[in-house]
């Protein structure tokens, strides 16, 4: 039995904020199971002595001068807003608290 269970998929849906219907959970469980079986082989060669590469071209210390620019007008900022009060974006009630 694989580690991908419907419960796990449902939990991942919560973490990723995608409301998955039961049918989607079932389908994804099967698909992910097959995919994970194929990609799990990365750990076969990833031994401790191999460093991780997160940037393909190694560079460091790339900074921007502390000069003002790139600012949007409020109209530009709100241009695509699904809802706003004219100054700020509006969302429906928030259940959870900030982190």
């Amino acid at each position: 039995m694989s580690e991908i269970t419907p419960e796990l998929v449902r939990h991942l849906g919560v973490l990723a904020r995608i409301q998955l219907e039961d049918e989607e959970v079932t389908r994804l469980t099967g698909e992910l199971d097959a995919i994970v079986e194929n990609i799990a082989k990365v750990s076969q060669v990833a031994s401790d002595d191999v460093p991780a590469t997160s940037h393909p071209i190694p560079m460091q210390n790339v900074f921007r001068p502390d000069e003002v620019g790139d600012m949007l007008t409020t109209d530009q900022a709100l241009q695509n807003a699904p809802d706003s009060d004219g100054d700020r974006f509006r969302v429906t009630a928030i259940l959870g608290e900030e982190q």
Binding site: R88, F89, V91, I94
Partner: peptide, 12 residues
């Protein structure tokens, strides 16, 4: 307060 609010406004 967050409790009982019906909507929230966001300023970035």
């Amino acid at each position: 307060r967050i409790q009982g609010a019906s909507s929230s406004l966001v300023d970035y």
